[in-house]
């Protein structure tokens, strides 16, 4: 199998160097672009397996780039954003970016995000794994069966749909909007607080303490992330 190629769209040279060194040491091939326009052109010319996109580019904002990429490709996009840019980050995620990293981030976090994004891109082709196991939690999506430490957990249809969307995207952030659309439907018009009520119920049934979760993690202002490793 050839090395996966990662395109880094980032205007800061030191950060680009750090990303190249780190990713190459993990045997990924790395391509670089210093502006949004160059990045878009490179993505068309030689489509990579994954794109790491900085939100603070001088020429184009992250939302525009994400939208222009999503017009023609499902290549996973990981956003790199500074603190205090929550709005732009959520907008890019809602527009189809796959995940994000907040500066400054460590290598472990970066590599975990890259692995999860590449894995999700791959499983989309073979319909994914129907069984999800994490510590005591076992979810069989084929048989609609949920157990914690061998004990059956009874979920309402909405709670089950919520959990199944979360575990299908394990390791990856899912925005509030995406969850509402996928669980209640895009026309339901439900608001985020409704989602919070359901998350609280779901966590209680799974025995997951919201303050110190084992399975379902909160990303404040963004959404939720299911643990994956």
């Amino acid at each position: 199998m050839p090395k996966p190629t990662i395109l880094v769209i980032e205007d800061e040279r030191p950060l680009r160097r750090f990303l190249r060194l780190t990713l190459e040491s993990e045997s990924y091939a790395v391509a670089e672009a210093a502006t949004g326009e160059l990045g878009l052109r490179q993505a068309v010319g030689a489509p990579p397996d994954l794109i790491i996109l900085d939100l603070g580019l001088p020429d184009l904002d992250g939302l525009t780039i994400t939208q222009r990429l999503r017009e023609w490709t499902r290549i996973p996009i990981i956003i790199v954003s500074a603190r205090g840019k929550e709005q732009e980050k959520v907008a890019a995620l809602d527009a189809g970016a796959d995940d994000y990293l907040t500066k400054p981030f460590g290598v472990k976090e970066l590599l975990a995000r890259v692995r999860v994004a590449l894995r999700h891109a791959a499983t989309k082709l073979d319909n994914g794994e129907p069984v999800f196991d994490l510590a005591d939690l076992h979810v069989d999506l084929g048989r609609r069966d949920v157990t914690v430490a061998g004990r059956a957990v009874h979920l309402t249809p909405n709670e089950y749909r919520l959990l199944s969307v979360l575990v299908k995207n394990a390791g990856k952030v899912i925005t509030h909007r995406q969850l509402l659309d996928q669980v209640w439907g895009p026309e339901s018009g439900e608001s985020v607080h409704y989602l919070r009520v359901y998350m609280n119920q779901l966590r209680q049934k799974l025995g997951d303490n919201p303050a110190r979760p084992k399975y379902l993690f909160t990303e404040p202002g963004v959404g939720y992330r299911t643990a994956s490793e």
Binding site: S191, H193, N200, N209, A211, R212, T218, P220
Partner: peptide
């Protein structure tokens, strides 16, 4: 927004994992 405060605590503690490594913490 309407928030569940224990959730917010969860993500705060997540940020502090490294610094809390040697601390007995009860919630």
């Amino acid at each position: 927004e309407w928030q569940h405060v224990p959730e917010i605590l969860g993500s705060a503690l997540q940020h502090l994992t490294k610094r809390l490594a040697d601390r007995p913490l009860t919630t």
